[in-house]
Design a protein around this nucleic acid. Sequence first.
DNA 1: GGAGGCCTCGGAAGG
DNA 2: CGAGGCCTCC
Length: 771
Amino acid sequence: MNQDYLNELNEPQRQAVECTEGPVMIIAGAGSGKTRVLTYRIAHLLNLGADAFQIMALTFTNKAAREMKDRIALLAGNEARNLWMGTFHSVFARLLRADAERLGYPSNFTIYDTDDSKSLLKAILKENNLNDKTYKPSTVLARISSAKNNLLSWREYLQDEELMTSDQQAGRPMMGKLYELYCKRCFKSGAMDFDDLLYNTYLLLDKFPDLLHKYQGRFHYLLVDEFQDTNRLQYMIVKRLAARHENICVVGDDAQSIYAFRGANIENILTFGKDYPDHKVFKLEQNYRSTSNIVNAANSIISNNRNQLPKVVWTANEQGHKIKMLRALSDNEEGSIIADLIYSERMTHQFRYHDFAVLYRTNAQSRAIEEALRRRNLPYRIFGGLSFYARKEVKDLLAYFRLAINPHDEEALRRVINYPARGIGNTSVDRLIAAAGEAEVSVWEVINNIDQYKTGIQTAAREKISAFAAMIKSFHVMLPTHAAYDLATYIAKQTTLLHELYSDKTPEGVSRYENIQELLNAIREFTETGKTALPAPSEEATGDDSRTLDAFMSDIALLTDNETKKEDDNADHISLMTVHMAKGLEFKQVFVAGLEENLFPSMLSLNEREDLEEERRLFYVAVTRAEKKLYLSYAATRYRWGNLTHSEPSRFLEEISPEYLDQPAVSHNNEENEGWNHGAEKRQGWFKNQFNNKQGRFKPLYKTASPHPEISFDADDPKDIVVGAEVIHARFGQGKVMSIEGNHPDAKATVFFQGHGNKQLLLKFARLKIV
DNA sequence: GGAGGCCTCGGAAGG
DNA sequence: CGAGGCCTCC
């Protein structure tokens, strides 16, 4: 191992790597070498003689885990294979496979993905005659998820008066009952959903001191990546595991916390400080990624957030180009401007396509940009969308595999009991489920012994059901004796699924058939080498070198990421993705599109300070993706849900200190203010429109008594603002114009605000009102 | 069982 | 507007 590796680190990085004992928190600013520190720290531990089997390192995404593993392997070689390193879910699933039986689950339990969970909830709603509008499966699931992530069992939920009352008042009194039914049904199916993987891990450690003891003794070192994204439950588990040795190292950046909306709990950072009062903090503040203009602009944005840990991100990099503002009249023009700029930048400065990324807030925005790129024949790739394993035909075949392994898996059963069609209709299925519910057994139990249950199903259908059961059983007995690929192809043929897809000669049908072939190829590769081109369970994750189908399937449900085969990965293309997807990535040139009020920040974020601050962190993430050049664009009009809407520039734009901005706004047409003159007026119409929308019923747009109102009013024309005028600013309140420099529309004013001091504001963005 | 019409609804998204 | 779910009709 390269002994000089410590010299490759700056001072705080080196300290963070070398401080191996005791609780440590590393606050890592954007682009400050976070992954480098994590990987070097682990390599350093190994170098000092720590056993890889004693190190647990947890990440959020498969991609992050893979990257880190690869990088550690470069530093520390083969030993890296023995690390307990992976996503929270995959590491805990591995732990559960060993001991889930103590909780009453089979060791070959199924993992339900979100689709399975929603589908189960839908079935439960139907059986209980509940309206799936009132109880939207996604909403119910979110509620259940949040309960589990706060360590609240369904029993506790039902006994919690506050929760019961609030559900009652929200018109959803059955929420707790649904939680109960959902849990019981999963359990009966021998299935865990994503949250159960965490929740049951916690239970296991909580209920069985011998296990807790074993793992506490085993894991001398724990590391958590993206700590700002952990929820309470994840933190609680890690804390328990670390309790013996207390060598726990968490790495994160509060400024990049953008997942609070799905339960991430930034409070964990504070809790960590309380739980480990003697912990050491290291701050990585030097940014190696971006020009100083970009770093400073990002700082000026994030300084508008009230909730943040003190830190100063800086860079020794060159000042670089100022940030370019791009103004368009429409979403289509925005796409054209961006496409033209990419074209000319690439031609004149010898960039490659992969140096460019276009980031946006919502997926719907990709269309206009895509069209512009396509018209110019510029190669691009859109990231996001369905993962390979989420495709219908793939899930169908996987459902058969799942049934072969765990026939109690009700979601898999419902999915394929009549696909391909074998004459078992909805009525029969409903009756099977009803009988199973009555007898409190799994549906498979009923199917397998159909004559012992009063289902009311006709003899003809009963025979078909029995034939189906016999087929599944025949697969089941083949599991231990057949290689994964042999059994997989056998099942694909035997169920006639392969034939069904083959006979569909429409382009979609052909593509579905190809996907199935790709899945089978992946299984073949797994069978032969233990590895696959598709993201698949690694050999060490499966525990031994058996290449059976259940080994392949053991955590396939956890492979939700989008990367499929890297066939055209070498192709040079522009990247299009949401800001969320861009987290952790970097590009030489970044375009952030759609910087408009109600879009970025999203309209849904405007009611609560916390939501708006998360939105601002999201903007911070977007800005800090850029290495060399950053462009921020906005459009005066945009099609949203089929309606032409007018918008005004995002408040975030005026939060950037003007000194980092390049002035002239670019427009294809030279019509200076066309499209903006009536912005305020039209914006009101847009607001009203949205308020009357169904959304408004659940989450009112206006909150009357917000503790820190960000005032909303109609701005005056910038041209009317003169030195000495008293003005109102949405966030800073009332102030006085001290001086104005430059010419309209790019005039810049210095305004003194009580309590905020002098602020430099670009008048065209500041939306000032004259008192 | 499948095609086609109608209705609804729309945020970002990992495992 | 457009995707997806559901119902109806053959």
